[in-house]
Amino acid sequence: MTHPLHRTYRYGGQQEFCLCFGEDAASRRVLIVPPLFDEMNRTRRMLVEMMRLLATRGIRTVLADLPGCNESSADITAQTLDDWQQALRIVSADMGITHIVSLRGGALIDHVADVPVVRLAPVKGSSLLKTMLRTRLIADKEAGKSSTAEDLLAHAQSGPLELSGYKLSADMRTSLEKATPDAMTHVHEMSLAEINGTPLWLRAEPQDDPAMSAAFAAYIADWSATCAG
């Protein structure tokens, strides 16, 4: 019952992978929209453990690979936030999603279905971009290349720029610069304190946190029971 299920969806002519836990027939089917880019890598283990625990409570969870990320063979330089939101719209329809949980930059692409949404630590796209640019500048400095954010952006111009291991097109950078979490009805913002959590997405190294996974799962189970899906 708590085994991972491997499902797929189609976007842009490609088959993309979804990690699911729980029964297909579960009455609550929750889409997890994780943080973006390197923050996603740092939180994945905590989220997957949370999904496993939700399955034991009879709740289906879905974590989709965004085109160009994880196992996806799509070209990441061809993606913008709109593509990712559109991809999640398809996942949401295919999987009959009844609730959405988004974290950090996930809140920039979580407007994909008319269902209740809970957000943890939503962030503006411009903050994410700034941190990734800083990380790149520091790495360049260590490698003996001195540059400024302006130099990097001017040099990349309309081409892709590699930030935190992700090649971001100019369109993706522009979409990030402008993106703010959508003001929607049915959105509830939860706090880290409510799940005794720490901001794992900020850590220099990926870590897990079984206690946070458990508290997060309990929170989602309670929250999803109180709002009609």
């Binding site: 941190t131 990734m132 800083r134 990380t135 500048l137 260590e142 900020l202 220099a204």
Partner: peptide, 14 residues
């Protein structure tokens, strides 16, 4: 040891 150059970027933004 936790404070490496990569962590510095996150610290500044926070």
């Amino acid at each position: 040891p936790e404070l490496d150059s990569m962590a510095v970027a996150g610290l500044l933004t926070e």
